[in-house]
Structures are given as C-alpha cells and as structure tokens.
Nucleic acid binder design. Structure first.
Lengths: 202, 202
DNA sequence: CAGGGAGGTTAGCGCTCGTTAACCTGAAGG
DNA sequence: CCTTCAGGTTAACGAGCGCTAACCTCCCTG
C-alpha cells in the first residue's frame, strides 16, 4: 500500500482543478484560461502537460472508472481470501463502503462520471463504458448472491438505482448543516442496504 | 382535470426538443441551429418564440420545478381531504408515485433538473432553487411523520438521496432490457420505501 | 381588396474559445 | 561555460456560436 507523501505533480494539480471546474460549470462551460488560472499558470501553458482540453476530461473519466473497478476487485479478493469461504453480505457491505468513500471524498469526480461521458472521443468513451459495465456486473453478481430471489434485470436496475442514491452526495452539502462525515456515510450505507432488501421483496 | 387533446404548439415542440438535446449533450453542447432543425425550422427562426437560448433553459427548469411542487401539493391536499384525517403513509406513497411518474415520463427534464441549473440568470436560478427547496421541505415533513425517530437533518439527507435513487431512470434504459414500465415503477417504489425505512433505523 | 402581423428565410457581425507559433528563462549536466 | 530542455509567456489565428438585420410570404381581418 503506497501512501503518497510527496507533493502533487503539476499534472495532478491540473487534473484536480479541472475536475472541480468541470463539475461546477460543465465541460463546455469552462475555458482553458480558467483551468490554467486555477493552478497559477495561464491558458496555453496547460499544453505542456496535456494534448488538449479533451485529453484532461478523458484522463479524468478513465481514471475514475478504473479506480472504482480496481477498488471493487480488491475488496472482493480480500473477502474471498478469508478463511471461511466468501461471505456475500460482507462483500456487499465492503462494496457499499468503498463507493461511499469515493462519493464523499471525490464529489467533483462523481459528478463528472455520469455527466460528461458523451464529450469523449469514441475510443475513450468505449473504454469508460466497458469499465463501468464491469463494475456494475461485479455488483450485480454479489447482490444476487445476497438476495437470490432477485432476477438479473431487476438486480441490475437496483444496482443503478443504488448508485443514484449513493451519488447524491453532491446535493447534500449545500449548507454545512449535514451531520458530519461519519454519520452521513452510515446513513447512506443503511439506506443502500434497505433499498436492496426492499428490491428483493416481490 | 384538463386533458390535452389539441396539437402541441410550436413553442411546446421547441421546448420538448430543446430539453432532449440539452439532456443529451449539455446546454453549451447544443447550438440553436440544431434545436431549430429538430423542429423543422432553421436557427434564428427560434427567436420568434423565445428571447434567446437562455430563455428556453429557464422556462424548462422553472417549469419542471413548478410542476413537481404543484403536483406534490395537489397530492397532499387530496390525501388531507380524505374522511379519516391525514394518513402519512398514503401521502408518502403518493409523493413517491408522482415523482416516479415524472422520472419515467420526462427523463430529459429530470436530467436537466440537477445538471444545468448554474447556467441560469441569477433571478431565475433563485426562483428554481426556491421551488426545489419547497418541494424538498414538503417531503421532509411527510417523511418525518412516517418515521418520527428521524432527526430533521437526517431526514433531509434521506430525501435528497431518495431523489437520487428515483432520478436514476435515465441510466436504466441503455438497452431495452428493462422489465417494462410498471415493473420498473414498482421496483423503484419498493426501494424508496426500503431506503426510508432503513434511514429511520438508528 | 388593401394591409398588417405572425412566422419564416439568409447574410453576416462580433465575440469567445481552443489551439498553435514564437519567444523567454532558469536550472541541470557535461 | 556553454548547451539543452522543461515549463512557462504573449500574440494571434480560425472556427463556431448566439444573435440581429433585412427581407419574404402567407393568412386573417376590416
């Protein structure tokens, strides 16, 4: 487990600020000059680090999808490696926890994730879609193990809907009135489990 | 109850197509020429019906928020007008049903609703935000009647999250493999109730 | 039957934005 | 000490877009 202690590179600064701006005002609503200004350089200086504005968005979206999928696979492997065979309940809880962490810690990315996909080049979009699909299918598999009386199409719909629930985090923090990160995470977790449980009750 | 039988006006055609295009490619990603072409006239012809591209978006967003709020108030009044005092469970079910109908029948509008709000003039944005807030507060009130052991901030978060769940409909229809409108609506309804129920379980 | 407004058309202006070109600078390496 | 190169700068170009201007053509009405 590599914990970053070194300073973020300029590329990473740019990506972070670009994600924030894209999430706030949309891909077409942000100019390269603004992105540059956000990291203290001006407009065309960005082209020393990226081939173009499109490339930034592509790297962000591919990165998000890849991180989500990789994290989910890691959690699945960890649970499967346990002594007593795989415990589907524990795996599902772990998946939910991972997704919540992501939704709470990287809200701009979560926002971009299902908002700006169409602005990508065909090849990049296909890659992102493929990663997303694998992520969904991984969830569907586990959900059907926990709730066997759930048909596959219904399970897939349920997974998408729970993603909608968990990805609602950007709408929560309008005022600072939300009850702290831990409580919010626990609330989302309970609601996700409750939604899945109710989905299985025909 | 006025059921429309007359043909849609040109204005309405334009709004409908603009909503679809904005939802597909974002407000800045669509040109006025495209919107015009979608209704069979060309670019600047739109200015006979709207003051500008911004005005179309504003009318769409204000319309959505207003319809949602009006519908919710009507449902609340109908339930309150019943013989045996108000039944919070029934009201909540009715609110959920109304929101699901909207999410299933007007997916482009649902998409716009939380995506392009920032592109509005200040006054329009404030109006939309106010309508949205009233809609949320109406839900919060009913939810807290059904689940009294839910504190207000948690209830508000739960409402936003359930909106995220219900508004996931645009992500469901990738392939035509979803199990029909009725089944989808029922699934979403069960999940929403399950999520609220789990939110109340501390 | 005149006339006027509703609802189109095309041409074109002005601005914004992504991108490139040309140039500069400070620090590292032989 | 000279070179080189990463990482900036400003100027400017070209395309696209929202919007206006000017004009046309029905259709309705007095």
């Amino acid at each position: 487990m590599a914990t970053r202690t070194d300073a973020p590179t300029r590329r990473e600064q740019i990506l972070k600020e670009a994600a924030r701006l894209f999430a706030e005002r949309g891909f077409h609503g942000v100019g390269v000059d603004e992105i540059g200004a956000a990291v203290g350089i001006s407009g065309p200086g960005l082209y020393r680090h990226f081939a173009g504005k499109d490339a930034m968005l592509a790297e962000l979206l591919v990165g998000i999808s890849g991180q989500l999928l990789t994290g989910a696979r890691r959690r699945l492997a960890e649970a499967d490696g346990g002594p007593a065979g795989r415990d589907p309940e524990a795996v599902l809880d772990s998946l939910i926890e991972g997704h919540i962490d992501f939704a709470l810690d990287d809200r701009p990315l979560i926002t971009l994730h299902d908002r700006e996909l169409d602005r990508l080049r065909d090849s990049d979009r296909k890659l992102v879609r493929q990663l997303q699909r694998q992520y969904v299918e991984l969830w569907v598999e586990i959900v059907r193990e926990v709730y066997p009386d759930l048909a596959e199409p219904a399970a897939r719909s349920a997974v998408h809907s729970v993603f909608g629930l968990l990805n609602s985090t950007p709408h929560l923090g309008r005022a600072g009135a939300l009850p702290g990160r831990g409580a919010t995470a626990a609330l989302l977790h309970r609601m996700a489990r409750g939604a899945f449980g109710a989905a299985g009750t025909d």
